[in-house]
Design a protein around this nucleic acid. Structure first.
Lengths: 243, 243
DNA sequence: CGACGATCTGACCAAATGGTCAAGTTCGGC
DNA sequence: GCCGAACTTGACCATTTGGTCAGATCGTCG
């Protein structure tokens, strides 16, 4: 819980006072081993909210539906989260935390093929096990990122900048084709998130009622093959020598 | 206008009576050379609606805002489009029409590298000149495609089935690597739409206030390079010279 | 146990919003 | 210029919905 709250404080600017008050309250309670009711209820609300926000978007979601899904009276929801926006922010903070770290597989020492393959597998796995997180984020971005614009411009941008340097390093080593590192990252994001965000379309085209584990395996294999062959430098042997 | 209406009739099941009535009225007027007021106003409303739906989603959009953007009183909007849902359907129909045809570049006689490169360029171009169309569609899919689910399962699925056959043909000819054709199509969609749907994120990471033509050119080059090298069979001879 | 803060909740409210309507005004063919 | 149809629009309404509140209940520490 506190992880999520900290992330929230980091990534959003509004409601400082509120957050501070709530955190103080939490700390005191946590120290006493109390507050487990709060923790449990916030958990349920966040989970319900993730689902409802994913299905209906921010405006389409109603606090009544979220509360119902969490099996709590609506007034209780507003006891834990002052406003719908605050609840939404909390959900977003969870997702951002999830997303951000995956890029850390990109380090100069590693082999790009390993790092990229792992990244694809990991991201695709999130799309499978927590599609709603992905959808909430996608929805937020789609509508202009009103809540996380500053986060994107700060943290995310810096992070991608770092990873772009790594990719450039790999290129310099002759391990990858010369390509634009940032666009390369966009393309990784695009293909992996697609299976969560556009799930309905994928299902419709494949004629599935639900995407199976096999579908995701096929997707992973395809993406990995495409990206690796598309982005890695061709192996120097086999009669061809590059660089 | 009639194109859009037909597409709408094809792709949605509800409101048959309404559509029929409106179409009859339209036909009569068109025959007399009248109805230009209707045409012009519907146009403005559709355009305004595309923007607002893209920015706010279906639930977030208000008929008042759409009307204001079209510089018409709200009651006037409801004169041309009975309900918000009907207006939304009309916007969607426009987009679907736009999307569907691009896949037709995939024909067995063509060279896959040409077809794919063209497709990427075309799709990316739509992302640039009509990002809102893409966003409306993305939003619809993201939230479970309540209005177009049947369209996806019918028309789109068949279309992709066809094109998958073409890809298989190319693979059989040794022009492409053996890969899953449908997933290949998903990946094409993903990377091209990303630049419209996640525009804010792309802008934030690139540090742009607006995506320039140059950004799109870079994206196109990168995607094309990645996909072509990733999906085409390696040229049999060592000295490369294609086209 | 008694106290006190945390938690719970039904009832309520004001604002926003989709949609209606009736009384107009304009248009274009005759 | 007349007439019916197309179009316009301010005023209005019912519903939905985010959020409030006061009073009740619970949990636990001293």
């Amino acid at each position: 819980m506190s992880r999520q709250r900290d992330a929230q404080k980091k990534s959003t600017s509004g409601d400082k006072a509120l957050v501070t008050r709530r955190r103080a309250s939490l700390r005191k309670l946590a120290a006493n081993g109390r507050g487990h009711i709060r923790e449990s209820n916030e958990m349920r609300l966040l989970q319900a909210a993730e689902t409802v926000f994913a299905e209906r978007g921010f405006s389409g979601a109603t606090t009544a539906e979220i509360a119902a899904r969490a099996r709590l009276p609506k007034a209780n929801l507003h006891y834990y989260f002052r406003t719908k926006a605050e609840l939404y922010r909390a959900v977003l903070a969870n997702v951002l935390e999830l997303w951000l770290d995956e890029l850390d597989r990109f380090t100069p020492e590693r082999d790009p093929s390993d790092a990229v393959a792992e990244y694809i597998a990991a991201k695709l796995n999130w799309s499978r096990v927590r599609p709603n997180a992905s959808k909430v984020f996608a929805n937020e971005i789609l509508h202009g990122a009103p809540f996380v614009k500053s986060y994107l411009a700060r943290d995310l941008r810096r992070r991608v900048e770092d990873k772009a340097a790594v990719v450039r390093h790999w290129i310099g080593q002759g391990k990858m084709r010369p390509l634009d590192p940032k666009h390369f990252v966009f393309q990784l994001w695009a293909v992996t998130q697609h299976y969560a965000d556009f799930e309905v379309q994928v299902r419709a085209v494949l004629g599935r009622r639900r995407l199976t584990e096999g579908d995701f395996a096929a997707a992973a294999a395809n993406i990995t093959g495409l990206i690796l062959q598309g982005a890695l430098a061709r192996p120097p042997r086999a009669g061809r020598r590059r660089k």
